[in-house]
Nucleic acid binder design. Sequence first.
DNA 1: GTTTCTGCAAAGGTTTTGCAACAAA
DNA 2: TTTGTTGCAAAACCTTTGCAGAAAC
Lengths: 160, 160
Amino acid sequence: MDARIKERLEAHIVATGLRRTKQRETIVEAAFATDDHFNADELLEKARKLDRTVSRATVYRTLQLLVECGLLRIVDLGRDQTYYDPNFLDKPQHNHLICLDCDRVVEFEDEHSALLHDCITRRLGFQPQMKSMRIEARCDELANTGHCKYKDEREKALAR
Amino acid sequence: MDARIKERLEAHIVATGLRRTKQRETIVEAAFATDDHFNADELLEKARKLDRTVSRATVYRTLQLLVECGLLRIVDLGRDQTYYDPNFLDKPQHNHLICLDCDRVVEFEDEHSALLHDCITRRLGFQPQMKSMRIEARCDELANTGHCKYKDEREKALAR
DNA sequence: GTTTCTGCAAAGGTTTTGCAACAAA
DNA sequence: TTTGTTGCAAAACCTTTGCAGAAAC
């Protein structure tokens, strides 16, 4: 886990007079263990593998905290639940492409989009604060070969 | 209400063997009466002004139908509820800017963004299907004058 | 010792669903 | 007559919250 995460969280804890608790630490550990997106339920499961006693309520409360201090961002994957993205520290400007065939989420950065967003926003009479782009698409692999390894994997997983 | 709406809905009804009902017609009427975005609850209220007997369940069922046939699109306004956008027939490529000061939603179209989206998508090995851009921003009006008429209006409405 | 935090269970809010009566074809 | 549709109420689902005991400071 990136040291900057602990630093920023620590700064937030000091600044707002919070306390350091084992449960919070465990949940943060679980959230940033991989760069996968997750929802509350998945995070609870991950955290419970590290400490079986972590509760759902604390997961929700910690999620709020992490969003507040900018370590997590809510990301719209077009699903019913709220998903969280732990990768904005590394890639503060990234966006998401979602494959309609296999639900795969591809993160991408693009140097032009920031400028475009900025121009549009200012032309409309606003100061930009946050921008996001979401692309839904179908993968060439599936179109060309009739198979997509991610789709195959997903179907195997569903069949279980 | 645009004639194309009825046409497309009619085509969908014929194609899938659905039936024409008064309630559905009322709900569609209410949904496309203005170009405002709305959530399920607001649509129910609008529809009930036309016909008091419309039920919440039918509103939800009709919303699904309209999204399926492409007449409505779910739009992420960063709120907790699902909001629907009735304006994609007129402006199939539009996007949203959300003002953080007053919650105002500004729709905009941009000729460059379509090309940019396309390039990015293809470079990643996908065929684009749907793209959206969301911008959160603060309005110049408020920054410059200390007042934003939309914010003022909103605060008056909340104070009631 | 004081204040915050936790887990639990209950509540809150939105959306979906089962069902019997009803309406369209 | 057949099949889809409706309204109602209940259920399902995710998320938040009140509270008493536990833990941090």
